[in-house]
Design a binder for these strands. Structure first.
Length: 157
DNA sequence: GCCAACGTTGGC
DNA sequence: GCCAACGTTGGC
């Protein structure tokens, strides 16, 4: 288990939930995760105080990194898995032993501009990022502090 | 809207 | 344990 601050990139489709929504809500459960790999990372590796880039996926030309947030809770059972009205109910999840977890995130800031996926691809510094690897489908992934810092720095240019 | 790349499910 | 069928993600 890591002790020092870790850095993440977290995807959301802006039509579902955008950085503007998080700015308004300030704090929000990052729910709806239905991927075991991602769940395990939230459970085993994420810690309160970790920082994350907010990434808009499936947003056409606006696809890219748009903001910064902080992890504000340990992983806990995602209530939406038991809600038939939610986008991703899971009837097979046992309330006694919930299958899916979420964490709370807190808004930190919106970048002065979108650092687009197209742009991210042009930086050699970032070429090892999982985000840029072909076939990557994780909606949350760890990134290096240097990558986190680099992207924020580019946003200011 | 298309489709490539993956993940999951379930029959055997 | 294999693998075909199916579902989802997400870039384009």
């Amino acid at each position: 288990m890591a002790k020092r601050t870790q850095y993440w990139l977290m995807k959301s489709e802006p039509e579902e939930y955008s950085i503007t929504d998080l700015k308004r809500d300030t704090r929000e459960p990052w729910d709806g995760i239905r991927n075991y790999q991602v769940r395990n990372m939230m459970r085993d590796d994420m810690r309160v105080g970790d920082r994350a880039l907010f990434y808009h996926s499936n947003a056409g030309k606006e696809t890219g990194v748009v903001g910064v947030m902080k992890i504000a809770s340990e992983a806990y059972p995602d209530p939406t898995q038991f809600d038939p009205q939610s986008a991703h109910p899971d009837p097979k999840s046992d309330p006694e032993n919930p299958r899916w977890l979420c964490v709370d995130v807190v808004y930190e800031g919106t970048l002065p501009r979108v650092v687009t996926l197209q742009e991210l691809k042009t930086y050699k510094t970032l070429s090892a990022m999982r985000l840029l690897q072909k076939g990557n489908r994780l909606s949350i992934m760890p990134i290096k502090q240097s990558e986190f810092d680099f992207i924020i720095k580019q946003a200011g240019k």
